[in-house]
């Protein structure tokens, strides 16, 4: 069954959540980690981070990047509804950290929810938010996982942090 518009009450709650998260940015370290989730502002953010860790295998995410992604989701016509549905199926409370390393069961998702998870993952990995109506835009270049999480094997493109000729050798593993 395709996702339906989200009830106003819950939309307001999400907006409040995101606004709270935004206001709290200076109070938290630059990088979120799942281990530090107790310090995060909302249960929903904790659940999203838990889901992202479960999907990508990455343990630490850039705080600002994640917040920008959530704001962008909020601006989708059914973004909050999709988010709620996906979290309720893939990251239900209470979160079990033992499950974080296990594959997710996407069989529990309907087509619309599956599309939404793919959309979140593409945003997270590429740092680009694809939006048909608003137009596509960059959330983050530096912290896109395709750059940030692979910099041990491939320097972030467009940055000069290496010595001449380093490319002759494989990355230190």
């Amino acid at each position: 069954m395709p996702c339906q518009p989200f009830p106003d009450r819950l939309r307001r709650k999400l907006i409040k959540t995101v606004a709270t998260a935004w206001l709290s940015i200076p109070c938290y370290p630059l990088l979120y980690s799942v281990q530090a989730m107790a310090a995060t502002p909302t249960s929903q953010t904790r659940r999203i981070l838990w889901l992202f860790q479960r999907l990508t295998g990455v343990k630490r995410f850039n705080h600002r990047f994640i917040q920008q992604l959530l704001v962008a989701v909020k601006h989708e016509p059914s973004g909050t509804d999709h988010l709620h549905r996906v979290l309720s199926k893939l990251a239900p409370e209470p979160l079990d950290n033992d499950m974080a390393q296990l594959p997710i069961d996407i069989g529990v998702l309907d087509d619309g929810e599956r599309w939404f998870v793919q959309h979140l993952l593409i945003s997270l990995m590429t740092g680009i938010y694809f939006h048909e109506q608003r137009g596509n835009f960059t959330l983050s270049y530096r912290y896109a996982l395709m750059h940030d999480a692979l910099q041990d094997i491939r320097p972030i493109p467009g940055t000069c942090q290496q010595h001449f000729g380093f490319w002759q050798h494989p990355p230190a593993q």
Partner: peptide, 16 residues
Amino acid sequence: MLNDPANWYQAVERLR
């Protein structure tokens, strides 16, 4: 890679 849901789990490692 992400077009295939089978690649969603451990997506970074698969991309690597």
